[in-house]
Computed example of a mutant assay.
Amino acid sequence: MSAPIRIIVAEDETLVRSALVKIISTQSDLQVVAEAANGPEAVKSAQRFRCEVVLMDVRMPGGDGISATAQLRALPNAPQVLVLTTFDLDDHVFAALEAGAAGFLLKDTDPQRLLDAIRAVAAGEGMLAPTVTKRLIDRTRERATAAKSNNAVTKLELLTAREAEVLHAVAQGMANEAIARHLFMSTATVKTHVSRILAKLELENRVQAALLFRDARR
């Protein structure tokens, strides 16, 4: 038989910590090697006892779980950290994940799901509560959109004021003749501006230019 997965339970509430230890101890392939009442104690325990997983609370007097997670992940042979908390606030979720946590579950998680999550993170897999997964996807999409928008804004700064006006009209779907009437210039001049806009922005056609303009306005 393979050696059991060694676990440190970091939780400031004694009753909750005892319950977690009891649940874990029912499994022959899991072993609690230490308990901690706060983040610093968890780090010290990980330095003293070899372990594969630290079950970490977020809010603990004497040292929070977020900073402790970052310290644990910086250790040689760093253990995986599975955050278990009552709070599923975005700040906690993303701070924990950015600190290096491999998973994030709520304390009302079914015991079997908790045990499966411990095994999963020990194997190098991620584990997130369903509500957290959706928000993480949404936040990633928002960040990607923001980055795309910032890139578009930077590119449009290459244009002159007049070229920006022409691009705005192009983005509205106006043809060259309509743009010429709208901006009081000749059609030939509009064509020249459009060509320069595409060249400056390294685009191939008006559709790409319109999309870039749209991204800049998000």
Rank of each mutant, 00 (worst) to 15 (best):
V93F: 02
G100S: 09
P79T: 07
A117P: 03
D110F: 07
F104H: 00
L84P: 10
Q80M: 05
L75D: 05
Q112V: 10
G124A: 07
V83P: 09
V83Y: 00
L75P: 11
L115G: 13
G124L: 08
A120F: 02
L105A: 08
Q112K: 13
M127R: 15
T69V: 11
A99K: 11
V121L: 02
A117I: 03
A120G: 02
D108F: 05
G100Y: 04
V121S: 01
V83Q: 03
D88V: 03
G103E: 03
T109P: 03
V93C: 05
L128H: 10
T69H: 05
E98T: 07
L97Q: 06
L97C: 12
P76C: 05
A74K: 12
A78V: 12
H92Y: 15
D91V: 15
K107C: 09
A70T: 14
A78C: 15
E98D: 10
E125R: 09
E98R: 13
A117D: 01
D88H: 09
V81N: 01
L97F: 06
A95F: 05
A74H: 08
Q71M: 06
A120N: 09
F104V: 08
D110P: 09
A78G: 14
L114D: 08
D90Y: 07
V93R: 02
A78I: 14
L89G: 13
G103R: 11
A122P: 02
L72E: 00
A117M: 06
R113L: 07
H92R: 15
A123R: 13
A99W: 00
G124F: 00
H92A: 09
P76R: 11
E98N: 11
K107S: 08
A78H: 15
D110A: 15
G103S: 12
L105Q: 12
A95L: 06
G126H: 12
P79W: 01
R73P: 02
A122Q: 10
D108C: 04
A120D: 03
I118G: 01
Q80N: 07
F104S: 06
D110L: 11
R73Q: 12
A123C: 03
M127T: 12
P76W: 00
A122Y: 02
L105M: 14
H92E: 01
A78D: 14
L114R: 10
G103V: 12
A101E: 04
P76D: 11
A96N: 08
R119G: 04
T85S: 15
A101F: 08
G100L: 05
M127A: 13
L89W: 06
I118V: 09
L114I: 13
T69S: 05
P111K: 13
A95G: 11
F104C: 09
A120K: 14
L128G: 00
G126F: 05
L89R: 15
L97M: 14
D90H: 12
L106H: 04
L89N: 15
P76K: 11
L106I: 13
T69M: 08
G124K: 06
Q80K: 04
D110R: 14
F87K: 12
L106F: 03
A122C: 06
A74P: 03
